[in-house]
Design a protein around this nucleic acid. Structure first.
Lengths: 348, 348
DNA sequence: TTGTATGCGTTATCAC
DNA sequence: GTGATAACGCATACAA
């Protein structure tokens, strides 16, 4: 029930006047300042509520030199994984009164730098980034580092002495994936991945290689196919695979979309999966249960990664202490076995 | 090449001082004010550039009472369609100096109202909303309407005299989808949809019904299955369908995920698609080409919808004139025929 | 525990 | 074409 004119914004001055107290007291009460008596606080809160007071962020932020805004730069928005991450971040941020400024690099280092610049100009309090496909330097974040604005890299990260990283153990996950194929008696295992410029692909390649070597299978350069990991790339990779002699009997792909593109193409050529070629993907995209046979994959939660990153940043921002910045957080990932990799009926 | 201390923010005062002119002139020049001489403008721009001046949004917005921020509320972030819409909005917004404040309602009218409240408190210059599953009133946007803050509904819309709507012709699309099934000689066509509370489902139901009636097929209430349209719901709907006698020979589902869930379940029960039951979905989700057989569906571009909505809002905000608000914009949609609906080999 | 006074960096309204 | 000056709404150092 608002009575009278609704369109005039209420300020702390209005409240102060009506309560015959000073604006400073109102300001402090609204911030739950300890040195204000419970009584006055109550009065103030009640009136504020009644007249529909809303804090003017611009005035407050101008004064306090804080923006209450977190910048997020991702390669693309429209992947299941990334939008889950954003959802996780959004949850934490909203809970703590932060807003999100979201921007996509479209997998381009240049656009990533532009976005960083824009974020910097917006004076975000903190920045969360998953690096673009071809980012190979962190120079465009120097401004943030110099200004001690916290920067968190997630999933696609590069180590930096003044940034936090959140990721999974890509090496181990790839090792497990490859080992699983070996246990299914695969002898020639191909790895489809992106250029090893990003940690995720470098580590997955290393895990793949180690698993092979531990099983006394020789690692061969020619069994690694480097693509951009899109579904189309997977489709095209199938041609290369069909030319291999002998045909591989197992393929470990560094992401699900690409694996699925490849599977579709191979199936069209009459290859039987998993009998002739077994498949393991990466990411547990919803599509992995739609493809036939269902895709064995590495699962890790984007939502959780977003939550963790968000919580970390919020804690950092709310604590006055300078937290040690160069942390690395490893989240859990799991191999999910589905039909696409099961040569032997139900785990031999 | 910045020389000296980098951490002190440059203000228009600093520029004014160094150029021995007034801050007012600097401010005007930076806004490209017509009454400032080209010469002084040039000097100012150059120096601003050199010293790395960046405008303080908070001060400016406090003064001008504009936030340069657009609020976006969507049911969920992590669907292909929605993240494409966001990408489209982001493109337009960034181009015109607007930031995006994004929040998800998680398909709950209550959370939607909360988000709207938060957006209102953040004083967004404009709001873009795709309504939650169970939103049946627009009351929680009244504050915006009263304050004449432009509101644009997209995809899941409700008509309102002071809001713009952007959507596709759901009636026609559903009509076409159903007609297509009829042309494939389907006699008993089931429709799986959500409660007709939202325009999209109401209109799709109406289109389905009209197509049937135009083909002299009696519309039957019991052939409409109401669910929440998730993939799981599709899976469960399969049970209901299997109990029908006779079995339907065509199913039109109001979205792809649900269609796919249903197809998977039916295939598990040995039903042949499309021979026994033909399928048409809605949305052209990437999954629709992964499922086997590939899913016939209605395609429309989320990215385009986002772009159009963004452009409209930006134009509105930049023009001083009060544009007629109660516009409705219909975007194009297309029936994409794939194997899931082709009973007769390749279009008879 | 509360009040006074000032400044955060802009933009806008006057003047000149 | 440019300059002085007053807000915008809040938070805080300093008083009381």
């Amino acid at each position: 029930m608002t009575n009278g004119k609704e369109d005039k914004e209420i300020t702390i001055y209005d409240i102060a006047k009506r309560l015959k107290i000073s604006p400073a007291t109102v300001s402090r009460a609204l911030q739950d300042h300890p040195r204000i008596s419970a009584k006055t606080k109550k009065k103030i809160f009640e009136l504020a509520d009644e007249v529909g007071y809303r804090r003017n962020h611009f005035a407050g932020n101008l004064r306090s030199q804080k923006t209450q805004t977190i910048g997020v730069i991702v390669p693309r928005l429209n992947s299941h994984f990334m939008s889950s991450v954003i959802a996780g971040i959004e949850l934490m941020a909203n809970e703590h009164g932060y807003s999100l400024l979201i921007s996509q690099s479209s997998e381009s280092a240049r656009k990533e730098a532009d976005s960083a610049e824009a974020m910097f100009n917006s004076r975000v309090d903190g920045l969360m980034v998953s690096l673009a496909y071809d980012t190979n330097t962190l120079d465009h974040f120097d401004k943030f580092f110099r200004k001690k604005t916290p920067v968190i890299f997630f999933d696609r990260v590069k180590p930096h002495r003044s940034a936090t990283s959140i990721l999974i153990d890509n090496y181990q996950a790839a090792y497990d994936a490859t080992k699983h194929l070996i246990e299914q008696h695969c002898k020639k295992i191909v790895h489809i991945t992106a250029p090893p410029m990003q940690n995720v692909y470098k580590d997955r390649l290393a895990g793949y290689r180690s698993a092979l070597e531990d099983a006394k299978i020789k690692f061969r350069e020619e069994n690694v196919i480097v693509t951009n990991l899109t579904q189309e790339a997977g489709y095209e990779s199938a041609e290369k695979i069909l030319k291999m002699k002998p045909l591989p009997d197992g393929i470990f792909v560094a992401n699900d979309s690409c694996a699925i593109g490849c599977m579709i193409a191979l199936k069209e050529k009459g290859i039987r999966i998993p009998e002739q070629i077994a498949f393991v993907g990466f990411n547990n995209d919803p599509m992995s249960t739609v493809i036939e046979p269902k895709l064995t994959t590495i699962a890790y939660s984007g939502f959780e990664m977003g939550e963790v990153a968000g919580r970390l940043l919020v804690n950092h921002l709310n604590s006055t202490s300078q937290i040690n910045n160069t942390t690395t957080i490893i989240l859990r990932s799991d191999l999910i076995v589905r039909q696409s990799s099961l040569k032997s009926p139900a785990g031999h």
